[in-house]
């Protein structure tokens, strides 16, 4: 198992010019690793919508690569998003942070924690490229392949839950985030 920071450090090293959408607990770490206009910290959010938001960006800007940092609790709230995204051959990478917990609410266990085969779910939903990693070393060795090439891609990371952390906050107001993102994407 890897720590959240170890998991995200590997993403930061391999994201190239992709837009990255952190959500929930990952927002507590990601700004220290990357805080460019292509980092869209989706908070305030509607929990579970991060993959859908990423897919919409891909469809609006063909060719744009998007990496979504999804928590397992968030993904379970909107599992249909995998079926929707699986319909499209777009450069969307869903990186699942699986810690079995609702971490930002104090660490309560999720439904099915430790029993859900997220890789099988993603394959069945239409993701042709599915990867799974249990240690930081394996993830570091596999990330270059996993985060390159055709999409959509699903990466399942086993991450240690961390209790007692403060609820994360985005590094800047949403209006400013949107303005920066649109400017860098040349989106009207």
């Amino acid at each position: 198992m890897m720590t959240l920071r170890e998991a995200l450090e590997v993403v930061a090293a391999h994201r190239r010019d992709h837009v990255v959408i952190p959500t929930m607990a990952s927002i507590g770490v990601w700004p220290a690793l990357s805080d460019t206009p292509r980092d869209f910290h989706y908070l305030p959010s509607s929990m579970g919508q991060m993959v859908s938001v990423g897919l919409g960006l891909c469809l609006a800007k063909p060719g744009l690569g998007v990496v979504v940092l999804a928590g397992d609790g968030s993904l379970l709230m909107n599992l249909g998003c995998l079926v929707t995204a699986g319909q499209y051959r777009v450069p969307l990478s869903v990186v699942l942070i699986d810690n079995g917990l609702y971490e930002v609410t104090g660490g309560q266990p999720l439904a099915g924690a430790g029993r859900v085969d997220f890789g099988a779910l993603a394959r069945a939903a239409g993701f042709d490229r599915v990867y799974g990693y249990e240690s930081a070393g394996e993830w570091a060795a596999g990330a270059a392949e996993a985060l390159a090439g055709d999409g959509p891609v699903f990466v399942w990371l086993k991450v240690a839950g961390e209790m007692g952390k403060a609820t994360p906050a985005p590094p800047r107001p949403m209006a400013e985030q949107i303005e920066r993102l649109r400017a860098v994407l040349d989106a009207p």
């Binding site: 938001v53 469809l59 929707t84 989106a187």
Partner: peptide, 16 residues
């Protein structure tokens, strides 16, 4: 339907 709105959010962020 909530997911439909999420997709629309991404589309709008991308200028659509």
């Amino acid at each position: 339907e909530g997911e439909a709105v999420g997709v629309a959010i991404g589309l709008m962020l991308g200028g659509a």
